[in-house]
């Protein structure tokens, strides 16, 4: 397939399908995240990039025989490996009998929240989740290091003018979106707080929150959105999220327990766990939301810059 637009849309559909597959496999939290991230954010980012780079792929003449060979070899290796695997859905497979039972049986007593995935994520394996937040933070910083451009005020005015005239056409969409955005934000907060009881949590909430802002940006232009949320504020929130998460660990360390041992946060261990999980979920939510917005802003800014350059070139070409 040579049309990259179709390729990206198919990828989005693939992500959405695998998300529904995850629901069928009882992984509701994962499905939620995959739908928000795979089908939402990454598809969106790819579309932005395609508008910058052009949407058709060049035909190549060389035959990728070597690639085929590597893939067939790796694939047959994996198939070979599957022969000794426990069968699908069997309850006494090794993974269900060693570490996992404790999470299922004891987490209510030890952590005190019904969503086992959240208690494993935020308490038993809190350090992995901390690592995950740092990965997102790294990506945000990396994208900024690659794409951020110095602000040039004259160009900004020009873009505002162009955007305003353009958006006259989308009047209906703009009004509907304006009405929707508060609900999306509210939903994000619901997901943030409800993570202990049902599917959801800081990460999904952050992505949904970011989605609302991105929607606003797409319809009202980057400059308007920048007025609402400026770059250094976003950076501050991103850093604060990581620091909040880390500080929970440091406080429990100062209280004489191990890093991320929430039991030490309050006199009652379960209350301590609740407090710890609440705080770190906020840390996750802040960092994820702000990094997603930051990445999108940087992408959109590049796109705007390139389009401006093209416009200037066109005008110059016409005058010649």
């Amino acid at each position: 397939m040579k049309d990259l637009f179709a390729v990206v849309m198919l990828l989005g559909i693939y992500s959405l399908l695998s998300a529904s597959f995850f629901v069928a496999m009882d992984a509701v939290d994962v499905a939620f995240t995959e739908a928000a991230v795979g089908a939402g954010i990454s598809t969106l980012l790819m579309l932005v990039v395609i508008t910058i780079t052009g949407r058709s792929e060049k035909t190549t003449r060389h035959k990728p025989l070597l690639a085929l060979l590597v893939v067939v070899f790796t694939g047959s290796m994996l198939i070979y490996g599957t022969f000794d695997m426990p069968y699908f859905g069997i309850a006494d497979a090794p993974i269900h009998s060693h570490v996992a039972p404790r999470y299922i049986q004891e987490s209510m007593k030890e952590v005190g929240i019904p969503n086992i995935v959240t208690s494993v994520l935020a308490s038993y394996r809190a350090f992995d989740t901390f690592g995950e937040v740092v990965v997102i933070f790294t990506a945000g910083i990396g994208v900024m290091a690659l794409l951020s451009v110095g602000r040039r005020p004259e160009e900004n005015e020009k873009t505002t003018a162009i955007d305003d005239s353009m958006h006259e056409q989308y009047l209906v969409i703009r009004i509907v979106t304006k009405m929707l955005i508060p609900f999306i934000l509210l939903y994000a907060l619901y997901v943030q707080f409800h993570g202990d009881f049902g599917p959801g949590g800081g990460f999904q909430a952050g992505v949904i929150f970011a989605a609302a802002i991105i929607l606003y940006t797409m319809l009202f232009g980057l400059t308007t959105a920048r007025k609402v949320i400026n770059q250094s504020f976003i950076q501050f929130i991103a850093a604060a999220g990581v620091l909040l998460y880390g500080c929970v660990g440091i406080v429990s360390m100062l209280n004489g327990a191990n890093f991320f041992d929430y039991n030490a946060l309050a006199s009652d261990p379960v209350a301590g766990q609740h407090l710890g999980i609440l705080l770190i979920e906020w840390g996750v939510g802040c960092t994820v939301a702000s990094v997603m917005i930051m990445i999108f802003f940087n992408f959109a800014e590049r796109r705007e810059m390139q389009q401006n350059n093209e416009k200037i070139n066109n005008i110059e070409g016409d005058s010649l």
Partner: peptide
């Protein structure tokens, strides 16, 4: 999948039991 654990020390104790399977080899 073969051992049910992610801890390296724990893995090293539990892997020998299933060492002869094709999955561990892969």
């Amino acid at each position: 999948q073969m051992t049910g654990t992610l801890n390296m020390q724990d893995l090293s104790q539990r892997l020998p039991d299933v060492a002869q399977t094709r999955t561990v080899f892969t």
